[in-house]
């Protein structure tokens, strides 16, 4: 188990190193000089040079890469070109919106999908199964940002149960903050729940055909008990994979949903920074999101090993 963890950690480190190189390279080839963008077209050449030196833009590329990576390891993402403030502080504020939103949506999606998938699998081919599968088929087809607009139309504009956008802030209390995240979370969660429910169902149906399920029935377990005691855990492996992938979808999907609800999250930050060509912020936010996804994949790998003893043994 320790060896497995170490091996996964090593692959996590390599992934991060390659990802940071790629992101740095993409930002490097981006056209436009941040210094002249910040000072405008009328800036003097010597002021530009001074600003470049201040931002560290005059250093060789490899040195700038190393100091960027080195800084991030200490939690220092550099200084925003636009606001001249610490990127770390800007991100920290926004993270407290985006991360809770993703986790909220992931929780909702799991809570809806697991029962729905198990229900459909246990009613294979019957009306309940067909109904759930039809609903998920439509759920997959709905773009989440459109769904978000519809939620706003119904629950904020017509019923006035929620506000149409904006974030109450955590200082207004937990429930006020969660309430302003509820519509966005539902918009994110339902299409993902549709996918997850389908994976849960098909994974369970695959397991139901396994020989060991027949062994379980032969020892006197009822169909339901065999499914719970022997089926679920074996069916969890593909489901875990999807859960890990969904986290990255929720983070990314969140970026767009934040636009619909005017939420001050990482998505707003990234779009503002793109239009201001504040590339160091774009770079850092992207790296942070990639880091989050790679970390989640690492945790999913560990979860595999917890579920499946064969993995623990093999590596």
């Amino acid at each position: 188990m320790l060896r497995y963890t170490l091996k996964r950690l090593l692959s996590l480190a390599i992934s991060l190193a390659i990802a940071s190189l790629l992101i740095f390279a993409v930002i490097e080839v981006a056209p436009g000089d941040p210094a002249s963008f910040m000072l405008g077209i009328n800036a003097q050449e010597d002021t530009l040079a001074a600003l470049r030196a201040e931002l560290g833009l005059d250093q060789p590329k490899w040195q700038r890469y190393l100091s960027w990576v080195g800084g991030m390891m200490q939690g220092d993402f550099g200084t925003s070109y636009q606001y001249r403030t610490e990127v770390t502080d800007m991100i920290a504020d926004r993270l407290w919106v985006s991360l809770p939103l993703a986790l909220y949506a992931l929780t909702l999606s799991t809570l809806i999908a697991f029962p729905a998938g198990i229900f459909a699998a246990s009613r294979r081919g019957k009306a309940g199964d067909v109904g759930v599968m039809g609903a998920t088929q439509i759920g997959i087809a709905i773009p989440n940002f459109w769904f978000a607009m519809m939620l706003v139309l119904i629950f904020a504009i017509n019923l006035r149960w929620f506000s149409a956008g904006g974030f109450a802030g955590w200082d207004k209390g937990f429930f006020a903050a969660m309430k302003s995240l509820t519509l966005p979370a539902i918009a994110l969660a339902l299409p993902q729940a549709a996918i997850l429910a389908r994976v849960m169902r098909s994974s369970l149906l695959d397991v139901l055909d396994e020989d060991f399920m027949r062994t379980a029935r032969a020892k006197g377990l009822s169909r339901g008990a065999a499914l719970r005691r022997h089926g679920l855990r074996n069916a969890m492996i593909p489901v875990l994979t999807i859960l890990g992938l969904q986290f990255s979808f929720l983070l990314a999907g969140g970026i767009i949903i934040e636009q619909v609800f005017y939420l001050p999250g990482l998505g707003r930050l990234i779009f503002q920074s793109i239009s201001a060509r504040d590339l160091i912020v774009v770079e850092s936010v992207t790296m942070l999101l990639v880091f989050a996804v790679i970390l989640v994949n690492f945790l999913v790998d560990l979860a595999y090993a917890a579920v499946d003893p064969r993995l623990r043994a093999r590596t």
Partner: peptide, 9 residues
Amino acid sequence: LIFAFPSLV
């Protein structure tokens, strides 16, 4: 590695 990047991002 490509899967590790949030695609939309």
